[in-house]
Amino acid sequence: MSSAIGVDVGGTKIAAGVVDSSGLILESLKVPTPAQDPDLIVQTIADLARQLGASDSVERVGVCVAGFVDRSRSGVLFSPNLSWRGVRLREQLQEALGGEVVIENDANAAAWGEFRFGGGKEADDLLAVTVGTGVGGGLVLAGELLRGGFGVAAEIGHLGLVPGGELCGCGNRGCLEAYGSGTALVRATRFAAHKDPVAAKRLIERASGDIAAIDGPMITEQAQLGDEFAKTQLAELGAWLGLGIANIAAVVDPSLVLIGGGVSQAGELLLQPIRDSYLKALSASRHRPILDVKVAELGNDAGLVGVADLARNSIGE
């Protein structure tokens, strides 16, 4: 039936697509993000939307960005990767496109996409975790996206797990993100490879002998080949994520956790350690049903698909 345009503005690329009401992407475009120029980013978003038919055939546009989106869903308060501070994105885009535009945080949009069309269709209360450069979170509670009082809920990457622990990009110490992100995985793995190059032999070979060249996909692929060293690295990442998830479970009691982002391709090699650690850190785990931990289904498209649906549903709001 009615389609909408979804745009996902990431730190390195902007993806845009026409999405139908069943969550199917009919057409899509992708360009690099001109990250240093905030105004050019806005122009680029508008251009992509126009190319996909905004303002003639498709009326609704949803845009999701990494960063804090204000409560009225009209501006971006703060986006570290896009050097945006207080950008009135909705107004600017509506002016450029002449139609309704909806703004959402990317992790929220991804959670909504999974809830509507992906791995979360059966759940009323779910947590979607995106493990990438950082750790993003989106919460759907009682079938509604949890936005919080000021629009910035579900920042689970910055739950404090280790008092006085590793420094996080946010300036605090000991955040989940400093231990449970893809970045943290690579850092910890390189460190462990330095300490025990014998155990890490295969992985180092895969990186052509250069420990500093070890990256996330190498670790996942090596683990999938059965390499114990690589498996241990993923298990440790999973243990941190499980701890953070247990804290969220104590607070909001979801029935499902979906893990997305590049590292989620490790599948059970990551999920099982998450489940084990979650169970260990969950209070009264014998007296309550245990939530499911699964891999997110929509992959990189979750944000785009989710925000297009939010734009379509915003009619009359």
Binding site: D125, A142, D253, P254
Partner: peptide, 10 residues
């Protein structure tokens, strides 16, 4: 918000 099992808020 009660959560799936009515256990939210712990």
């Amino acid at each position: 918000m009660r959560g799936t099992n009515g256990m939210a808020g712990e």
